[in-house]
Each structure stands twice: as structure tokens, then as C-alpha cells.
Write a protein that binds this DNA or RNA. Sequence first.
DNA 1: CTTAGGG
DNA 2: CCCTAAG
Length: 672
Amino acid sequence: MVFQKRSDYGSCGYPIPVMPQVPKSARGKRSVRKKVEESQMCAFDLLAAVAGDLLLEKENFSTLNNATETPCPASPKHTVKVESNMDKAVKPEPYDQGSCNKSAFVSEVLVQRPVSCQIKGQSNSPKATISEHASISMKNDGFSKDGFSKCSAVDGNNRDFRSSPGLVPWKCSSGKNFPGFAESSEAHKICTLEDPMELDVKPPLFVSSDSSVEAPLYSNRIACGVSSPKLCNAVVDRDDDENLFRCTHPSMMTYRASRLQRVGNRRIRKLLASRHWKAALTTSKVGELGNNDAESKLVRKMCYTRQRMQRSSFKRRKVFGGCSIPASKGGISKEGIFSLGKGAFKTEVSDSCTTPRGANGQSSSRIGQKALCESGDFHVKFSIKSFKVPELLIEIPETATVGSLKRTVMETVTAFLEGGLHVGVLLQGKKVRDDNKTLLQAGISHGDKIDNLGFTLEPNLRQAPETLTGPEHPHLLLPCDTVEPQPLSRIPAITAPTSLSRPSSVEPLLTSLGPESDHDSVHSPTSESVQDNPTATNSRALVPVPDMDVKALAVVPLCKSKRSELVQRRIRRPFTVSEVEALVQAVEKLGTGRWRDVKIRAFDHAKHRTYVDLKDKWKTLVHTAKISPHQRRGEPVPQELLDRVLSAHAYWSQQQAKLQMKTSPAEARLLL
DNA sequence: CTTAGGG
DNA sequence: CCCTAAG
């Protein structure tokens, strides 16, 4: 059999391309991947490691321990004690130099409140209150003096909110302040982020008009804020020079900020650095190295979600709740993936800690028992050891700098936080909805077991859906549950994983894990909040949180919700004529069967087009070319192109046949 | 990881 | 586009 050049391809016909021997080293930087794999490190481990060093450095740089106790002028008895490892003088470092890379992400928080505090604040109430939009104060310079600010400077949108008395600005790398907070009259969110990797979550500090609190802060850090200017006209006087933040508050609070410690149970499942880095925070426990196929698929699927370079993907992934859940496993894709243990941001896990599952599971707090019941007769004292940051998925080109990686992480985190967070209170596994109840009424008294008290960080997608999930910003994918419009009035997503309704507009980007994400939250099997019975609690103030059997929880995500398995399907992106053109041209040149090369040749920059996509497209093109024009759908492909498709298809098919015959003469003879 | 093919 | 078996 002799292959004849086809005249319809010109005088030269189709040159039989020489199979370029692509060195393996050029394929996905396997060496790098392997290296990371072997070291069993995850991106966040790396970051954390660096962060830890930076933090140490930072601490050494500090002059003294800022742990101070400043008596409240108005009421010496009511003080805000802020203990922090953070030094006063934060070594200013450009973002790219790691200033934003700190290990501390969540701090232990000690909160003392009068048992008479109301769960929900009322404008005229002098009592401490927990507004529906609980405030979460995170360390943050927020005033363009250190790392974080520099980060935000990247976007050239450093806004100064100091001019807004009573409002604690939320400065994020994106240069946006906390939606609904600084910019909104309904500023009910007080979040300050000192730096990307250091989110010292402090308990919400609610300030009422007559309250008085003086909290010493450091480096322009704000530790307290007003939950809502509308509700309270708290006097928030920030002293830049002394880094003091003053406000009045009758409640007594003790904040103990302790640096988070990295958990050693995070592992890298897989690292691919071919073209992108993908980082995902997943729950990971020691010895629970997720290794099942499901997880693998999951991560692999996540890869498909990556759409753009220089952007970070923020997306909730399937979550394995409970400690017994296998850690998510990273997958490998051409684009590379970093699958990180969710525990990246988690601190130590104390056995005595309760980790009530957040209603929304975004994150939950850990409460150390040791701090429980230590307060006086009229104060509820407990410590929140950590707020867990929901899982994040990050994508960044391998060519990006470490600094940009940090920035990306920062942005991702910020994006999430930016969406709006509120705190949920869980008592013995039940969500305390009535914000108007006093702690005592709610059953949160000094005498009771505070260990059943839990907090959750719940996203409020309403705050920034368009910003985070717009088609133009696929890099920001918020967890489904963030869609929850009325967090406090809904049943926790975890209870109805499949009933969650999402705005269609964000559906494509949020499909991934919604409810399942609930299982992301730090959840201890021994969580009293789940096991204990809500006995001595005010039933009216408590909304039953669906019984979440620990075991059940552990399995739910795996078999209960199919979506969790399916994760998210990539958004459909019809090929444009120009893309088809490029594809056809590449195939004409390279032939079929070399999709990777085709991809590199013609779609190297189209990150959303995988070689499989190209192969599939070619398949459909061939099909399209064969059917009658009126049967075709979608954007019409020029007949000229279709003709070329057929021609090339025929040509390469022949080539393939020819090649096969060479390989197996016997078979060839049979055919002849 | 890539390919090839079915779904 | 997804999923998978094969290589």
C-alpha cells in the first residue's frame, strides 16, 4: 500500500510530521512535582513554614510582648485584655517579601462576658450584644502600614477608612473594604486582617453606646469595632500613635491571641506545577491521608475548574467532615495541583476542645475547655482556639513569583472573607438564633458547660456574589453555602445538602461543594455540641441543629450527596470559529493522536482548553462536517473549515491505518 | 500523563 | 464535557 499525497492539500500534501520528542522534563515539570510529592508537603505547608519563620522574625523584632491589660477608664472592672504574640512594631515588608506570609491564622480567643449579655444587640441596650451579624475582628493593620496594606497596594486602591469613625475598615489585598461594613451603613462586620496568613480571629466585640472598652493594639491593628453604627454609637477612637483603639463597653472581655501552630497532619497529596499551581484546602488529618479514588477524582475535577491564569480560584470543595474523614487527596493534572490539607490554617487540636460544626460549616471555632468556667460568677469565660478558614482553591501560574503566590492566597482568603461573614453561635449543637436572648437565657452561663458552646464563621454570599462569582472572575469561587442569604434563619446547609438553592447566576461556579462544605468545618467527633443533650438550655432560644451523628457526618459527604462526588462540571465554553480554525490548522499539521502537541501548538495559552477538549472538539467537528448543515447547532462553522476538517481527518486516518499496517503486516494483509 | 473512545 | 481504560 502506498500512501499518496493528496492534491487537495497542495503540492506538498500533508507532510508526515516528525514526532517531536518532547522531553519528559518538559511535561508538567514532573521533577518539581515529584519533589514536592516526596516531601509530602503542601503548598500551605510551605507557606506556613515560611510564615512561621517570618513570624518568628517578626516577634524577635518586636520590642516587647504586647500582652497587656488596659483598664477601662470608664469601668476598671471591664477591661479588654489583649494578649498577643504579635509585636508592636511589625516589620514592614513588601508583600512580595513575605510580609503577608504569616503562620498565625487564627488565634485563641478568650472571651469573658457578663452572663447578662444579650445575644442580640439592641441599640439602646447597654449590654453587650451579639448581633446577628456578629463581628469578627481579625488582626489587621488595615491602615497601610504593614504587609497587608502593601498587599492591597498592589491593586492601587488603598483607601483610608480612618475617616470613618466607628467603622473598622476591612482592607484586603483587592483594595476593597469589607462589603457591607465600611461602605455600608449597615456596617455590621468588623474584620480586620493584618495579613493574609495571619487571621487572628477575635471574638466579636460589640460596642454599645455606653460601653467602654479600651483595647491596646499593635501596629494599627484594630481589635474591636462596632457591630453596627446604626445600633450603637460606640466611640471608636483609634490612636495611630499608640495603636490604641478605644471604645466603650460594659462587658469584660479577655482576648488571648495566640499564634496558631501549624498542624503536622497536612500533607501534600500531589503537586503539579506544569502550568499552574493549584492549592486547595482540604481537611486532612494525620493518618487520614485521603487516598481513595473518589478524592483523587475530585481533585482532578477541580483542575478543570481552573480557567484563568493570574487568578485564584476560590471554591468550596467536597468536604469530609469529622476527624475521621480521610483527607482530601490532591490530584494531578497537566496543570498541576496543590492539594492542601484543610488544616493548614488550623491550630492544634485539643482533645478537650469542642468543635461544634458550624451550621454552615464554613468554619467553626474550637473552644478550649480549660478556659471554661474560670470566670467569675457573672461572666462566661471561654476561649476560642481557632476559627477555621474554609477550604480554598488557588490557582497561580508557575511562573508567578512567590510573592504573587502569597498575594493570591491573600486575595483568595480575602475574597472569601470579603463576601461577608457572620458568626453563628452553637450551643450544644444547636444554633442559637435568638440574638436577643441574654447569654444566660440562652443557656450560656458561667456555671454551665461552656464547652458546648461553639462559634461558626458563616459566609454571606449576599455581600459579594457578583464580585466573587461572576463569569469574569472564575478565580473566585465561593462555597455554595455562602449563597445562603439568611444564614440565621435557615437550616444549616449541612442538614440539607441537596436542598440548597443557589442563584442561577452563580450556579456554574458554585456548584462544587456546597453543603458538603459544611463538613469542612472543624468537627470533632467528641464534640459535645453534637452529643450532648440540650438540657439546661433555653429551648426557645435554641434552634435544633439536625442531629449530626459523628459517624454519619463522616460518611455523609461520601455517599449522601452525589454532588459532592461530582464536584463541579466545567462551564461550557463553545469553541469559537477562530479556535476551530486554530484547531484545524494544528491538526492539519500535527495530525490526530497528538492532542497534547496540538494543545501546545495552538492552545497553549488557552488554559481552559485541555488536550482532551481539543480532541473532543475535533471529534465533534468531524461529526459536524459529516452531517447536513441544518442539523448543526451552535455557532456555525464555516464550511471551508469543515471541509478542511474532513480532509485532514481522512488524511490522518489514512496515515494511522498505514502506520498500523506497518506495525502489523499480517493484519494489513488481511485487510488487503 | 496522554490517548482514544464511549457516555 | 466527563469518565475511563490503556499505555
